[in-house]
């Protein structure tokens, strides 16, 4: 991988780093306090060390599925985590597959209505999930299987596809961008050799836009993982988000427990992000200029 490390000045690099760090202070501070509070008997909010009294009880309780010290009720947090992951992975998969297909068509094929479709996709975000949810719910009701035993499974499928749909327009645009950056000549030679577009897409282009795919996967995953409104409305089972939301009551929730649950909720995403960063930034090696 090429970098311009040799030619750029170390000093400006340090200066920039410090500048971003300064700008990130509120974020750092706020989220560190959240994490610290999860190990404390009371919320740390005012930077006084007195309020930090170390305990790991919050974590023990959360991992046992309890969001209360005395009392409360044990929930299957493992299952909730699994549900969340299932939705997130499902959304990531559906979004990536669909946008990899449509992104290619919009990047490489000319057809009537292409310009319109591109604009239209962009406009679709004029009514994000919240506004459409009433209609999406009605559709859900109309398509619900009559046998109650299938409802749970159906609700998973529905929430995955419905949530993925919200990301499709943006993902398609991004995918188109990734395809645009691949030189046409690479494909051209294969097509001249008689390969079909579908085959070229699958065998040649997809491997080349791996970083793009990773980015879209990440997008989809985050969207599915952090979704609250769709999950709450359609999914029969709870996820981590709905679980935390339903147990955060300003008057009597023990906030450090919520902090621990919130940190737990953030963990997998952080890991996912860290590992996929490399993939994300990996520029494709290509000798051919576009």
């Amino acid at each position: 991988m090429l970098t311009d490390v040799e030619v750029r000045s170390k000093k400006t690099e340090v200066a920039i780093t410090i500048a971003i760090l300064m700008a990130s202070i509120p974020l750092f501070l706020a989220f560190s306090l959240l994490v610290l509070s999860s190990f404390s008997k009371e919320m740390m909010t005012n930077l006084s060390l007195e309020s930090f009294r170390f305990t790991i009880e919050n974590w023990i309780n959360v991992l046992q599925g309890k969001l209360a010290f005395t009392g409360g009720i044990r929930q299957n947090i493992l299952k909730y985590t699994f549900n969340t992951a299932l939705v997130a992975l499902g959304v990531a998969g559906v979004v990536t597959l669909i946008s990899a297909l449509s992104g290619y068509a919009l990047s490489r094929m000319n057809f009537r209505g292409r310009k319109f479709l591109l604009m239209f996709l962009l406009m679709l975000h004029a009514f994000p999930g919240v506004a459409l949810i009433v209609g999406v719910y009605l559709l859900y009701r109309l398509s619900l299987p009559s046998s109650p035993s299938l409802v749970t499974t159906f609700s998973f499928m529905y929430v995955i596809v419905a949530r993925a749909a919200l990301e499709v327009p943006m993902a398609t645009w991004l995918m188109k961008g990734f395809f645009d950056s691949i030189p046409w000549e690479i494909e051209w030679s294969a097509i001249v050799d008689g390969a079909s577009r579908i085959r070229v897409w699958r065998k040649i282009l997809l491997p080349l836009i791996k970083p793009g795919i990773a980015a879209i996967l990440l997008f989809g995953f985050l969207a599915g993982w952090q979704d609250l409104i769709y999950v709450r409305t359609f999914l029969v089972e709870p996820t981590l988000a709905t679980y935390i939301e339903a147990n955060l009551e300003a008057e009597y929730s023990h906030m450090p427990l919520i902090a621990a649950a919130g940190t737990l909720y953030l963990l997998p995403t952080i890991i996912f992000f860290l590992t996929s960063q490399k993939l994300l930034l990996e520029t494709h090696s290509g000798g051919i200029k576009g």
Binding site: T17, I20, L21, S24, P26, L27, F28, L29, A30, F31, L33, L34, M43, T45, L222, W225, Q226, L228, L240, A241, I244, E245, L248, M255, I258, A259, A261, G262, Y265, L266, T269, I270, F273, L274, Q277, L281
Partner: peptide, 26 residues
């Protein structure tokens, strides 16, 4: 850069209620 970016990604990844709680205290 990837660490910094991660920090800036936290708001997006946080559950809305927890995110609100963080800034409520802040």
């Amino acid at each position: 850069s990837s660490t910094l970016r991660l920090v800036w990604l936290l708001p997006r990844m946080s559950p809305i209620a927890v995110y609100s709680l963080v800034w409520y205290y802040f």
